[in-house]
């Protein structure tokens, strides 16, 4: 049964297992430093016939299919699917879920979606109402560009603080039992932070305070310190946001996380070789990195305790144009190898 620990953390006393996970990525990600880790690598971002939205949806579908296939389960075994993406009304997830016939809850947590989905899936399983829960998140460079920025063929220069939306999807399955599998031991839903950032080209700066808030709450509630973790993994703060997070943690909380901190947005690309400005972003960023590299390492016992904190910028193109601030959130999932 899930029990509250401290003020915000929730301890999952049965520690449900991540019984399977899978990832699917596009061209640029498949050429990045983590290329070998992904299950499905496409050589083009045009993954299927049709629109970019359907390409993204297909990525999510592929990740789900693969996650089920890897553990020999079928969609019929699943009791709930939590999924989300960046597109209006979460269409990438909806269209991917359409063919599965699994009871579906669409989520919007911007780039924090994978952590949110994994947290809810683990909660559902731990409380006993759900036997097998699926969590999935996706994003696509081309569908995000057309919705949030400019047409693909528009000629322009990007600011160095901007981030590249990852073309990728990740899916994981949570169930009660499972031997020698990574387990979700605690989850924490974040609180919204708003520090007055309005620059949509600097999402890392908008999201860093939310990550700091969640990490601080988590450490405090669980009476732990950064050294207790092998890895504190943020979702997509990128280079600028990661620097800010470490600085905020030191100046405000006197806590130095730099020895154990890494960021999926910095891991998925090679900034020297690939034209990605401050790093990767999007729901698919941490989804594809966690559902490949990180969970593999946890399964192999190369990592023992990971705090996965995915951040999301909760704005829309409309509110950004209206000059509103960019509120941000960060959800935490503690994954252990017990």
């Amino acid at each position: 049964m899930p029990v509250r620990e401290g003020r915000y953390a929730i301890k999952l006393s049965d520690a449900p297992a991540v019984i399977s996970f899978a990832s699917a990525v596009g061209k640029t990600e498949g050429e990045g430093p983590l290329a070998e880790e992904f299950d499905i690598r496409h050589t083009t971002d045009k993954i299927c016939e049709g629109t970019w939205e359907m390409c993204e949806s297909r990525l999510a579908e592929e990740a789900l299919e693969k996650a089920f296939a890897k553990c020999g389960r079928t969609y019929e075994d699943a009791d709930i699917l939590f999924a989300g993406d960046l597109l209006n009304q979460c269409v990438a997830s909806t269209f991917a879920a359409r063919g599965t016939d699994i009871p579906y809850a669409g989520l919007f947590g911007a780039c924090s979606t994978m952590a949110l989905a994994a947290a809810l899936a683990a909660l559902c399983v731990d409380c006993g109402a759900v036997r097998l829960a699926a969590a999935c998140a996706s994003s696509h460079f081309c569908s995000a560009e057309r919705q949030f920025r400019f047409p693909l063929e528009y000629g322009g220069q990007k600011t160095p603080t901007a981030q590249r939306t990852v073309t990728g999807a990740g899916a994981l399955l949570v169930a009660k039992s499972g031997k020698d599998l990574p387990r979700i031991t605690r989850v924490m839903l974040g609180r919204i932070r708003d520090q007055g950032i309005t620059d949509a080209n600097n999402m890392g700066a908008a999201m860093a305070p939310a990550a700091a808030c969640t990490i601080i709450d988590f450490l405090r509630d669980t009476n732990s310190s950064p050294e207790d973790f092998d890895l504190i993994l943020t979702g997509d703060l990128g280079k600028v946001g990661s620097e800010l997070l470490r600085e905020v943690m030191i100046t405000r909380e006197q806590t130095d996380i730099s020895a154990v901190h890494n960021d999926c947005g910095m891991m998925i690309y090679d900034p020297e070789r690939q034209d990605v400005c401050s790093g990767g972003s999007g729901c698919g960023c941490s989804a594809s990195v966690v559902c490949s590299h990180i969970l593999k390492k946890l399964s192999r016992g190369e990592l023992h305790r990971v705090l996965y904190v995915a951040t999301g910028a909760l704005m829309s193109p409309t509110t950004a144009q209206q000059g509103e601030n960019i509120p941000a959130i960060a959800h935490a999932v503690e994954i252990c190898n017990i």
Binding site: T159, P160, Q195, G196, N202, A205, E247, V248, E324, N325
Partner: peptide, 19 residues
Amino acid sequence: KTPVDAAYDAMTKRASPPS
């Protein structure tokens, strides 16, 4: 609307490389 946090704003400016 939350006002700009001056200390954080200065931190952001330092961390963000200019064009």
